[in-house]
Nucleic acid binder design. Structure first.
Lengths: 346, 346
DNA sequence: TCTTCCTGCACAATCGATATTTCACATGAA
DNA sequence: TTCATGTGAAATATCGATTGTGCAGGAAGA
């Protein structure tokens, strides 16, 4: 039934009148060390080409206890992680390896079982982005002798690369304050922070940076300027509506944490007159191309997914010590640059 | 050096005082057919649990000529394909298999070498989305005995699932015409089609649907109502600007093909007064949440990535004939529903 | 009592590669 | 002639699972 039962080195050996081990050596490049004549190797390689031979990677993997697979574990395919996945995929393929990307929906058990499964495939290395349980994952990897790195969410037991959320928030806040126009109302002229989860390290650090700059430039800061209990767009929508009602208008400065919160805020903003919206200086800690295309200026921070990924690969190659932490400064997309036509109309 | 050289069925066999084959049968579930006593199987399973044993999937794969890997090949990680990838990942993991997702940037050679590599890993099945060279891929898969399905971009040599672009375009065009307000100018009241590549099947079919409805409802149609030579945002921006200049204003109906073209169009729209923008009835053949959040109504068509993926899996499971083609009707996101607050203000 | 048949498992071959060991033969030095 | 040395490649063991076959021992039927 099977027309092409797939050629093996034994088939080639027969035709080339050589032994399977010689064929193996010729094809995987180790023939120089194994004292095989160049002509012999070439002859074998030529025959393999004619046969359309390709190595059975499971057999090789079984023997060598490696697989040529490099895995990325991440929560989902939102814009940031999708970008990360693309950068990962490209890098891995450049090295002639095969990328395995698994999303586990921030689920603790899924993460563990996935790591176990990847270990069963003898993946050569594992990249973990935005993990729910970094420590457990790292412990398992250590047991299974899998090289691994963490991205975005650090882990004390392994090398990690993360965005410098605190400084990013600082820069964004500075830009917002630099471009804002005060209303003259004390309450409304206080900057507010909207969205995210203050119990997660990323949000916590962004709040720190925000608070730093606000205190430094405006002198005072109150905790009620922060609404950070959820990444859910609905939460952001509710909170900004409540704030608007309480203040009798928008604040003059609003730091929106994450694209999903921004979406929620936007839903509310659509319900009020555009002129009012234009009085507010917005910052969004996330990047979304459409953000540049709104009718009012929004400053955005973009995590450098390519740099994060490059550094992660570098950490693995250098066999960095557990606990090594690299922080990457994100980029500011100021509305001053990208939306100049609008700003200038003011 | 290696503390944990990884347990094997032989280790378990020794402890359980059973043979490796019995252990294998007990652990992979075939023990009933192999007439192994339930107690024996349970004892072995218990020991395996204590050992923290997990099957070496490369060894199993070598023996069975399968791998437990299911692959998805796609061009990139844009929003549509990311959604597709997420649906794929979820489904594959539900089956206890491991998803391998590779993006090949619409590159002919990359696609071929990737398929070869996947074949070397003995992937059990392959999903191909938006391929550049479907026929070649399918031929290779047939040779290598890999079950495969095409998504989004059909292939005559294998079963395929695609969006019903033509009907989607019809529905979108109808909605645009139903909600438009005519300007009274003959030229401007003709609907226009912007963006995409008319040489690709998807765009061609959308144009067909668009033309159908326009001819049916307005009687006449000219080819100069179509601008479809590139998916590039810059192209869309240029074309709409030129059109605006020529017509002395926006047309009253504009069909924008794809989210990238929409981005380009939006860049131009930002440069003209908002009142003018509101006179135009927009449709976008692609879905983007932010589209719902603009200050003017945009009808959108959303490809049902979940349904596409479900059907693709079904085709594989049913071992559908080569050439089988399933078309999926996309969803309309009418601005009448999603942006009601704005529409009602008119 | 002597075949059958069934139960329960062990044995051994196998998948296709890699890595280590062995070996035939040639060359050259002693 | 004899033995060390080196060259080129074959032989063989091995990775860890699956799978077809064999074989005891006990029950059941003739």
């Amino acid at each position: 039934m099977k027309r092409t039962p797939k050629r093996t080195i034994y088939d080639i050996a027969r035709v080339a009148k050589a032994s399977p081990s010689t064929v193996s050596a010729a094809l995987n490049g180790t023939w120089k060390n194994r004292r095989i004549r160049a002509e012999t190797a070439e002859r074998i390689i030529e025959i393999a080409r004619e046969f359309g031979y390709s190595t059975n990677l499971q057999a090789r993997g079984l023997r060598t206890a490696r697989s040529g697979l490099t895995a990325l574990l991440m929560p989902d395919y939102n814009r940031f992680f999708s970008n990360l996945a693309e950068a990962f995929s490209t890098k891995v393929r450049q090295k002639g390896l095969c990328p395995v990307i698994v999303s586990t929906d921030r689920d603790y058990d899924e993460e563990i079982t996935t790591v176990e499964k990847l270990a069963s495939y003898a993946v050569d290395s594992l990249f973990v982005a935005g993990a729910a349980c970094p420590e457990e994952i790292s412990q398992y990897c250590h047991k299974a002798h899998i090289d691994h790195v963490f991205i975005d969410q650090p882990c004390s037991l392994a090398p990690s690369v993360v965005t410098d959320h605190k400084n990013g928030a600082r820069i964004l806040t500075e830009e917002m304050l630099a471009t804002r126009r005060e209303v003259g109302d004390k309450e409304r002229d206080r900057p507010y922070f909207l969205g995210g989860d203050c119990h997660l390290p990323a949000t916590a650090q962004r709040i720190e940076g925000f608070r730093d700059i606000v205190q430094q430039q405006l002198g005072e800061f109150h905790d009620d300027q922060i609404f950070a209990n959820s990444y859910n767009p609905d939460y952001a929508e509710e909170q900004i509506r409540a704030l608007y009602d309480r203040l009798g208008g928008l604040p003059s400065t609003l730091f929106v944490n994450s694209i999903s919160s921004f979406e929620g805020a936007l839903r509310f903003l659509l319900t009020i007159p555009e002129e009012e919206v234009k009085t507010c200086s917005f910052g969004c800690f996330d990047f979304e191309p459409f953000g540049k295309l709104l009718r009012f200026p929004v400053h955005m921070i973009r995590q450098r997914h390519n740099v994060l990924m490059d550094q992660a690969f570098a950490l693995l190659e250098d066999k960095a010590e557990p606990g090594t932490l690299i922080t990457i400064k994100p980029e500011l997309y100021s509305a001053r640059d990208s939306n100049s036509n609008i700003i200038m109309k003011k």
